[in-house]
Nucleic acid binder design. Structure first.
Lengths: 333, 333
DNA sequence: CATTTCGACTAATCCGGTTCAGCTAGAGGG
DNA sequence: CCCTCTAGCTGAACCGGATTAGTCGAAATG
């Protein structure tokens, strides 16, 4: 900027006015300065700007799921991709980190905020008793929760009505004639798992069906194990299983087939969170689809607003839709 | 820091010496300053530090594969996770972004470098005639190539010997009695695709076998389509197929099964890049495994050294190993 | 014609660190 | 006892921007 100022015969201050499109310089001067800046290939030094105006110009995302299951689930990549698509508009980078556990994650937030590394963070996988919300509120750190606005305090949330989706699924299965359902759910400490489980059992009871839930860690192995356990030669085995992610549904399918059962003739399977994975297998899996990338984009927009000091409200996205494929049918008996 | 200086009765300079563990202050004073810093919860402002010492304190990774296929492949998440595990040691964050194409990616590098947003970048998916290497060298921007050190100029690379792995696989299949092989490869513009294809055809010729390669975009659909095309009722259909990623292998398996063929009795399938995905399906897929996270960690270590101005050499990791599962057997005829 | 107003720009300060050329006092040497 | 040396610290500049309180001259106003 000093170079530009020298070449233009003005001071740094004038150059700053010109480059930031603020009043204080005449049109001819502004153009002259912009031309010189262009010629010199000037780009603002992010550190200097950050130091001066007190904002980092970046947002953060911390994921604390184990890397093994993480890689497999398309959810996060799609979410990140969606966040990016929005952040790219003003060239804001995303800082991505993985943490061992919640304590490490909280420490990271404190550190990021104290060092002014980010202007705000995205919060995923909200837990039943989540320390992060409190910490972020105390820090005064802008944040957007990706998930239901329950126990999120003053933090805005981007969410979709999982309970409604669960009810739609249960009704769909009941209409087909299923009377014994099962859910292979994620970890019970995750808040959205609880929401889905609660809705599931309430709906099942209301319709006079029976329903059991098995807790897992979202891994394929756990999904397969749960499936085998549910189906192993009991008279009251369920006729339909709802999996809490696509990975478990796919390995559940493999487990079912290796037991000699046919899908959907003997048992109907259904995956939460649709992805190409569900289309890869045979038969393709009926799934609950939602626009995860859009989800991320909305969260990014909210966080940008929140970091800018604007008041932000929760944003509800459409509830997951049922995408019918080949893995669900009426039960035989 | 000014606060600390005031409380300790010294100047900012002395505080800086103490906090950075540099000579210039006595031990008692250093301890006093550190104690006060601790008490005040001082953390260095990253922008100020970056401005002062000219380094950003962050590295970057740009991915320009379409988000759809990206989410499915565990490769990137595992790579990122590995990079993180190393960067976490000194709390260096990773900037992750997705680009539309190479031009956008190059523009991003220039911008990041001009703005001093990162101290270096990881380069993935090197292409046949890759503009990025040249640009980075011209910029003088530290970078580490993740992939074979061919056409990488002065940039250090972290790689594994794909050609050797290909040869091992072809020999293994030949030993079992397979004479007609096929490869469902990734995009031909990717350099590692070329390396694998070249090694494949050379080895096939050397052993007196026949081998064809089909090019795809890595997507599951393309994998299934290629599979169907290869197997559709021709007398010279291959008896074994090697897929360039696990997603294609899984959908190839589904395609094979929907054609009424049995794996491995009628056809042997083999996946490049092992992941839980390969274990989920039935039969589980024999695959080429490598330690992708370790790969990322090594790349991170190299990049840190390169950004520090240290001379760095290419690092060769172990070649992918063949993990035998149930999808490969001797051909019937 | 004196006075006010305003646009265009300058000069200085700040952001929060790092760095470096002094300065001072006490230790060591002759 | 004087001189030198050095450990320990000070003060100020610097990184590259943004911001703000002035300054100046010309046009508008009374």
């Amino acid at each position: 900027m000093a170079d530009i100022a020298r070449r233009a015969g003005v001071t740094k201050g004038a150059v700053s006015f010109a480059l930031n499109n603020r009043p204080g310089v005449s049109e001819p001067t502004r153009h002259r300065i912009l031309a010189i800046a262009e010629e010199l290939g000037w780009q603002p030094n992010s550190a200097a700007r950050a130091l001066s105006d007190g904002r980092a110009g970046a947002f953060g995302l911390v994921i604390d799921r184990p890397a093994r299951t993480l890689g497999l689930e398309p959810f996060f990549m799609q979410l990140i991709s969606g966040i990016q698509s929005e952040l790219t508009r003003d060239a804001t980078p995303l800082m991505l980190t993985m943490a061992e556990d919640q304590a490490a994650e909280v420490a990271l937030y404190k550190s990021w905020w104290a060092q002014r590394r980010v202007d705000g963070v995205f919060l995923v996988d909200l837990q039943a008793d989540d320390a992060r919300v409190t910490v972020l509120e105390q820090l005064g750190m802008p944040a957007v929760v990706i998930g239901a606005p329950v126990g999120t305090g003053a933090l805005p949330a981007v969410w979709s009505d999982d309970a409604a989706a669960v009810r739609a699924v249960v009704r769909h299965l009941a209409d087909l004639g299923h009377r014994r359902l099962a859910r292979v759910g994620g970890p019970a400490r995750l808040r959205h798992t609880v929401i889905r489980a609660t809705a599931f059992h309430a709906c099942v009871r209301e319709l006079g069906l029976t329903g059991v839930t098995v807790e897992t860690d979202y891994s394929g192995e756990a999904g397969a194990a749960a499936t085998r356990k549910l189906l192993s030669g009991r008279a009251d085995a369920p006729t339909a299983i709802i999996y809490d992610n696509d990975v478990m549904a796919v390995s559940g399918l493999a487990a079912v087939q290796s037991m000699g059962l046919r899908v959907p003739a003997d048992i109907s399977l259904l995956a939460w969170d649709d992805s190409a994975l569900c289309e890869l297998v045979h038969p393709p899996l009926t799934a609950l689809s939602r626009d995860i990338a859009g989800y991320g984009a909305h969260a990014a927009r909210l966080l940008r607003a929140a970091a800018g000091g604007l008041p932000v409200a929760d944003r509800e996205d459409p509830a997951p839709r049922l995408t019918l494929r080949g893995s669900v049918a009426a039960p035989i008996k």
